[in-house]
């Protein structure tokens, strides 16, 4: 990767001093305009209370995706693809520091987990957000290691707010209740015995959501998951995703 590319990426994510293109845009903007307003036109959206103090009127979808949280009156949808994880998610801000989510998660189209969730924003600072999320769903896996059962996941997200990017770390603890059937075939007949066991999956995703515009964002992340730990070893993965959002009220 060339130095020029690195510098341009740094400019994109961190908001370095304006280059020639930015200078031209600034020159055409009123003297009182902030650089953010000059660069990204307001899409006739009302301001969000969660962006006060950031110097921008409307927070981009990228920042809300990184936090896993949508402010009051906002919505977003997203889809991601990678190895081994694929996913789709929709979230809706309902006010009172809460947002709801519907999510579908899949690994290699053999392991699926649809879930609904509730996210609470625990810390909301101009540059840092911390949120907690509870998801309740159903896990089903097909193939040689078929399994199914109710699933719950707790997530903790730390998201930073840079100018046009939102690095984030998500830690998850996913629990599934599985039923095991043991069939004993003996001379006296067949006996079926049921027992329960748990499957725990530890999860860490480290990534960044880049704001393409206020409504669009691109998610790039590494996924470190330990599925069915500690019984099974796991190979790290990565995904790329797209998020899109707006206002519903």
């Amino acid at each position: 990767m060339s130095v020029a590319v690195i510098l341009s990426l740094g400019t994109f994510f961190l908001g370095a001093p304006a280059g020639p293109a930015d200078a031209a845009a600034s020159a055409s903007a009123p003297a009182t305009s902030t650089p953010e307003v000059a660069e990204v036109p307001d899409e006739e959206a009302p301001p969000s209370p969660h962006t006060r103090g950031l110097g921008v009127d409307v927070e981009s979808v990228a920042h809300q995706a990184a936090a896993g949280f949508s402010g009051d009156g906002r919505w977003q949808v997203g889809a991601s693809a990678g190895y081994p994880w694929w996913g789709a998610r929709a979230q809706l801000g309902v006010g009172h520091g809460l947002s709801t989510a519907v999510e579908l998660q899949s690994a290699l189209a053999r392991r699926w987990r649809p879930a609904i969730g509730l996210t609470s924003l625990w810390l909301d600072r101009p540059r840092v957000r911390i949120s907690g999320e509870l998801l309740l769903g159903w896990l089903f896996q097909v193939g040689e290691l078929a399994r199914r059962g109710p699933n719950a996941e707790l997530r903790l997200r730390l998201a930073l707010r840079l100018r046009r990017a939102a690095p984030y770390l998500m830690l998850g603890s996913q629990h599934t209740l599985l039923a095991s059937r043991t069939t004993i075939e003996a001379a006296s007949g067949t006996t079926v015995r049921w027992s329960a066991r748990g499957e725990w999956t530890g999860w860490a995703t480290l990534g960044v959501v880049a704001a393409v515009s206020r409504k669009w964002g691109i998610d790039l992340a590494a996924d470190l998951t330990w599925v069915d730990a500690p019984a099974t070893a796991a190979i790290p993965g990565a995904h790329i995703g797209l998020v899109y959002g707006g206002f519903w009220r």
């Binding site: 690994a107 290699l108 040689e144 290691l145 330990w226 099974t232």
Partner: peptide, 21 residues
């Protein structure tokens, strides 16, 4: 046999165990 396929799949790391074939 299916039982042995399951046994072998359980020895592969995730996600290789999802497509052990």
């Amino acid at each position: 046999p299916p039982e042995t396929q399951t046994f072998l799949a359980s020895r592969f790391p995730f996600p290789l165990n999802l497509r052990p074939d």
